[in-house]
């Protein structure tokens, strides 16, 4: 009984801030300006297929890059002494203390046609290169901003891997590569799936990064939604429909990934 009552505030919270907005989005997505039921909004989303595909693609690329960078780093961190580990965690969190917009502005000034990098290349007589307003810049922005969200869950899982288990694998003849593939990887699967979720979901729905680093040509779903609510294309019904589609896409991606994660685990068992 007691636990029932103590959970009550959370139920209220969820009803107010999770369920209600969801219902609102649903209602908006399936109604027109007069409040009548319609599926026109949803079918209209089809016109933006290329934006949807681009969003998923760029977010996926950024997620993979984050994983490739973060995985070895998290492993090395997890094997350091306790005080070095704390320092590393601090260093990784540090950029997050700076405002997100500020960080992204900084990248603008670095990547611009007469920005820091191009001026640097100019010293050697090469360039200028087109870096700003490219898909590469968008991916870079995503990786830079979301990398900590990949490192931290991986690190948290990896510190729990007992060094003695790694020693046991080495003792049985496992080379460093083999230790990584047949002990560390299977034991870190939960961290991998958390990290992927934490990077992919915000990356796929971002709009600031794409607007600031991608220019007008690399519109993402986030920008599209933003336009429907705050931009000149004002149409909250279409915006809701796009949001709904985005949610479905994320759900699909996540369930595909969980499937993969489970397989990974089962494969780990067979090694």
């Amino acid at each position: 009984m007691k636990s029932k009552y103590s959970a009550l505030p959370y139920y209220v919270w969820m009803a107010l801030f999770t369920i209600a907005p969801l219902i609102l989005v649903l209602v908006f997505a399936f109604t027109d300006n007069n409040g009548a039921f319609t599926i026109e909004n949803i079918s209209q989303v089809g016109e933006y297929t290329n934006v949807l595909v681009r969003s998923v693609w760029l977010a996926a690329v950024a997620t993979v890059i984050c994983l490739l960078i973060a995985y070895p780093l998290a492993y090395i961190m997890s094997r350091l002494g306790p005080s070095k580990q704390r320092t590393m965690v601090m260093l990784i969190m540090l950029p997050m203390w700076m405002n997100f917009l500020l960080r992204t502005y900084a990248w603008m000034t670095i990547l611009e046609n007469n920005g820091l990098l191009n001026r640097f290349f100019g010293l050697f007589g090469v360039g200028p290169f087109d870096m700003i307003n490219t898909q590469g810049a968008v991916v870079l922005g995503m990786v830079y901003n979301y990398l900590p969200f990949m490192i931290l869950p991986l690190y948290t899982i990896m510190v729990k891997i007992d060094n003695r288990v790694i020693e046991a694998a080495q003792d049985l003849g496992a080379s460093p590569l083999k230790v990584a593939s047949s002990v560390v990887l299977p034991l870190s699967v939960p961290g991998i799936s958390t990290g992927i979720t934490m990077v992919f979901v915000p990356a796929v729905s971002t709009f600031i990064i794409s607007r600031m680093l991608g220019g007008g040509g690399n519109l993402l779903i986030g920008d599209l939604i933003d336009l429907q609510f705050l931009g000149n294309a004002y149409n909250p019904h279409l915006g809701s429909a796009i949001s709904l589609v985005l949610m479905v896409i994320i759900l699909l991606c996540m369930s595909v990934m969980n499937q993969f994660g489970e397989e990974e685990e089962r494969e780990g068992m067979l090694i």
Binding site: D162, V165, E167, P186, L187, G268, M269, I271
Partner: peptide, 11 residues
């Protein structure tokens, strides 16, 4: 090993 160090993910 003194404290076994078995692989927790394997049977």
């Amino acid at each position: 090993f003194q404290r076994y160090a078995l692989f927790p993910h394997l049977n």
